[in-house]
Design a protein around this nucleic acid. Structure first.
Lengths: 124, 124
DNA sequence: TCTGACTAACTAGTGACACTATATAGTCAT
DNA sequence: ATGACTATATAGTGTCACTAGTTAGTCAGA
């Protein structure tokens, strides 16, 4: 289901937003976030990508951390979205929609050969 | 019109695709690409971002280069999309649509608290 | 004439962050 | 005990955007 691997630049752009969105469903931990995102079609999220990101979000005050014992396995670091994080999610989500709309508008625009070539330097 | 500045990670993700799309309208040069993208709502594209990108695309064989005298000003380095570049644009455009659909599907998904928390380690 | 504004391409230095690979440690089945 | 799976984390490397310039041409106004 989640076999596809997207460009790392694209993942770099959207991963943070997707992680915040995942956290909005309730407290969870890194490994489970990676599993859910993979299931949703984002490809495999490596620990070396995810954990530093979660550390940055903790430092930013967007998430809070609580250790809990796991059900048969090592301890889990449960992460919850703070109010600041929830605000951030809302802001980023709205911006993301605007941004992707802007990109799609450009991609779908009519091919007008030479649109940008008349730049005003042509004074005559 | 182009006052908004998007997150640099987002621009990093989409700039290449947008540049290829701009080139698909016909040969043009760096400064004009930056001006057109700004007009289309992408914010200001700095030379330090754009020119290295164009150099990479030239090295990748996606664009070809030709110097022409400018209309009252320094020489312009006109860039054309190669056939390889055109293929790349088509591929990336299709992938971009898939990717943004995947992200939006996640953002719009119903909030189901604890979705990913039952991961199979809970054996009993 | 020389000063600044605009056009146009390009580079050095720095920093952010993903990637590869690895470490640590717990549980469980063979 | 050996390997597979769960779970978090870090070191080293490389890519690339950002800041802040340089070089160079044209043109308008002091």
């Amino acid at each position: 289901m989640g076999a596809k691997q997207w460009s790392s630049d694209w993942m770099r752009a959207a991963l943070g937003l997707c992680v915040l969105r995942t956290l909005a469903a309730g407290p969870t931990y890194g490994y489970a976030i990676a599993a859910e995102l993979e299931e949703r079609g984002f490809g495999t999220i490596k620990g070396g990508t995810l954990y530093p990101l979660l550390t940055r979000y903790d430092a930013a005050g967007w998430i809070s951390v609580e250790w809990r014992v796991g059900a048969g396995g090592p301890e889990r670091k449960y992460l919850s979205l703070t109010n600041t994080g929830l605000d951030e999610l809302a802001t980023q989500t709205a911006n993301w929609r605007d941004f992707t709309d802007t990109v799609l508008a450009h991609l779908d625009s009519t091919l007008t050969s030479g649109t940008a070539l008349t730049m005003g330097t042509d004074k005559s």
